[in-house]
Simulated scan of single mutants.
Amino acid sequence: MAESLPLLLRAARGETVERPPVWMMRQAGRYMKVYRDLRDRHPGFRERSENPDLSYAISMQPFEAFQPDGVILFSDILTPLPGMGIDFDIVESKGPLIEPAIRTAEQVDNLRPLEPAEALPFVGEVLTRLRQSVGNRAAVLGFAGAPWTLAAYAVEGRSSKNYAVIKAMAFQEPELLHRLLSHLADAIATYIGYQIDSGAQVVQLFDSWAGQLSPIDYDTFAAPYQKRVFDAVRASHPDTPLILYISGSAGVLERMAATGVDFVSLDWTVDMADGCARLPESVGVQGNVDPGLLFGTPEAIRERICDTVRKARGRRHILNLGHGILPGTPEENARVFFEAGKSVNDLLGATA
């Protein structure tokens, strides 16, 4: 029966639900003491994300603590890159490092097609275990990085403030960049299909750095490849809802909706009412509480959640932060966020 399916899955499919489901980007991670203790014992990020026992345990930590409506795979957007021949490391306080960076036609031509079951079996194992563990108490979420963002990391070789290297490639060697983006789009579509086959019920695509593009360049280098991923996944897995998130997306919201995605995840720089007005009614909204608010008082958190949910009423809405929860956020305030989200109907009734 549909009623037995997880709330988040029902909401993402467009069904009428009793309240907006609630989960939190980066809900497994550094703000939790249990995670920091595990990190002290296993300091390598790739060990934590690619050892299935560790990834499973970390994925379950926020569910065991807060019972959100979604449990998301603990992994990284760069995880599939080695399966294509792009190795990386993640250094604490420095972020991802890719050496050598991908900058030549020969390097692009030498990239391999992604075979997730062979290259990333730990991802499938963790997702299968998560589904078995949470049953219908929560939806299991998968995720992947979008082609532009993965290309930005691969070409820059690290995080960047101005993305000068990949933008130079875009404007000097656009054909080379399009070949790289095409390869990444096909690989990511395959990767998402593998996640769904392994147990993911909803999948979010992170194009974290597409907000660094002008609208005209978004139309050229990001949106077509987002759509290529979505079209391929929908052809093979038509019933799986897809979410698109871009940090700093205020200038391209309408363009995001045009990719064919089911949900647009809003960051906190857009008012929820404005975001809903700018997006077609057929597209759901996710978000968009400022993560910094979780350093505030419980009263402020509850008030903002009520404001967000009130402004999204009448739309498919998944309550979330407008970005990942910040390190140092008090765990009790994360608890307030989840509890307020689950009791939002009562809170709104009290303030009506």
Rank of each mutant, 00 (worst) to 15 (best):
G124P: 07
R41Y: 01
K342H: 14
Q27R: 01
A2E: 14
V203D: 00
G248D: 02
V155W: 03
K33N: 11
I166T: 07
L326V: 11
L54M: 07
H317L: 10
G349E: 11
G292K: 10
Y245N: 03
F66K: 00
D231W: 10
G314V: 13
L111F: 00
G324E: 10
G287M: 09
M256H: 04
S160P: 14
P298C: 04
A146C: 09
A170V: 04
V285I: 15
L120S: 08
Y194S: 03
K311W: 07
E303L: 09
R10I: 12
C276F: 02
N333W: 05
L176V: 04
M60R: 11
G287T: 06
V289T: 13
L127D: 09
L181W: 09
G83Y: 02
V229W: 12
A2N: 14
L244H: 13
E15V: 01
A210K: 02
R310V: 09
L81T: 08
L294M: 07
Q61I: 01
A185D: 12
Q27A: 01
Q67W: 05
S198P: 00
L54S: 06
Q61L: 08
Y35N: 08
P121F: 05
K311E: 15
G70Y: 07
K33H: 12
L266R: 02
L97M: 14
D40W: 07
T149A: 06
F295E: 09
Y31G: 09
G341V: 02
I196L: 05
L150Y: 10
F263H: 10
N333Y: 06
M25F: 14
F338N: 01
I77E: 02
K342Y: 00
L54W: 11
H237K: 15
E175R: 14
S55V: 04
T128R: 15
E339C: 00
A350C: 02
A146T: 10
L242F: 12
F88K: 11
V344N: 07
S75T: 13
V289R: 00
R158G: 12
V261P: 04
